[in-house]
Amino acid sequence: MLTSKRLRAIADYVREGSRLADIGSDHALLPVELVGRGTCPSAVAGEVNDGPLEAARRGIAAAGLASSIEARKGDGLEVLRPGEADTVTIAGMGGALIVSILESGRVGGRLEGVSQLVLQPNVGEELVRAWLLEHGWHLAGETILEEDGKVYELLNALRPAEGQAPNEELYGGEPLLPGLSAEEDRKLKLRMGPYLTRRPSEAFALKWSSELRKLRGIERQLERSDTEEAAARKRELAQVIARIEEVLECMPTDMSSRS
């Protein structure tokens, strides 16, 4: 059984019968869990570094699953053959790196046949949401959780099927805050999560209270510069801070007080 709350939440998103590719698999804990409990009939554990690759192979062998899980060395989705997997998980990387992996896989045809992406960026979640939106992936769900003092966001994306709500509906509709333009509202939902802002939680409040402290720190640093560029950046930052504060103020008192 997985001891990590984060990995358990990722595993819970993976659909029954999926052929899994876990990119950056480290010790292959996720593929071993999902194949071992029968959720996935097969899996590929991809690793770019020799140490984690060998650790993955040892873990797979110890679980007696070498016939169902293959650990492969390669950069991102290069470990896959087109059509080999229908679900891809990528966890524990920065959002920019995840986007780079997905884009390279898209261009190289490695996402052919993939119908589900379960992604857990450590930072830069808005970059991942923007890539999904740009390339027609439907953001079907989000989870935010705290574990060992860190807050994680999980994104579950599906290729749109007939009848599914399009991303335009998800990111459009009623704005998060009164008076926001459609463009401002979309940017805020990409930054904070269209589902997470609808269902605020303690983990959500914890994350954005921390982000506000970081942004205010950057704002104070910018005050030391008298360049026009710094002034423009400070104005932009002040607007972002104000929007985040407004969202937090709409939350229950016991959560928003954390800011």
Rank of each mutant, 00 (worst) to 15 (best):
Q116N: 11
Q116W: 06
Q116S: 14
Q116R: 11
L117E: 03
L117D: 08
L117S: 03
L117P: 11
V118S: 02
Q120E: 11
P121R: 01
P121N: 06
P121T: 00
P121H: 04
V123H: 12
G124K: 05
G124C: 04
E125R: 14
E125H: 13
E126K: 06
L127V: 12
V128K: 02
R129Y: 00
R129L: 00
R129K: 03
R129S: 03
W131A: 06
L132M: 08
L132S: 06
L133R: 14
E134C: 04
E134W: 03
H135G: 04
H135V: 03
H135A: 02
H138I: 10
H138K: 14
L139N: 00
A140F: 02
A140M: 09
G141E: 12
T143N: 15
T143F: 08
I144H: 09
L145A: 05
E146L: 12
E147A: 08
E147V: 10
E147S: 08
D148H: 15
D148P: 09
G149C: 11
G149H: 13
K150A: 14
V151Q: 09
V151M: 12
V151D: 15
V151N: 12
E153H: 09
E153W: 05
L155P: 05
N156A: 14
A157G: 09
L158P: 08
L158K: 10
L158V: 10
P160E: 04
A161H: 10
A161L: 13
A161Q: 15
A161K: 13
E162W: 07
Q164C: 11
A165Y: 08
N167E: 07
L170D: 00
L170E: 00
L170W: 00
L170F: 02
Y171C: 02
G172I: 06
G172E: 07
G173H: 08
G173K: 05
G173M: 10
E174Q: 14
P175N: 04
P175D: 10
L176I: 05
L176K: 02
G179K: 09
G179E: 10
L180N: 12
L180H: 08
S181N: 11
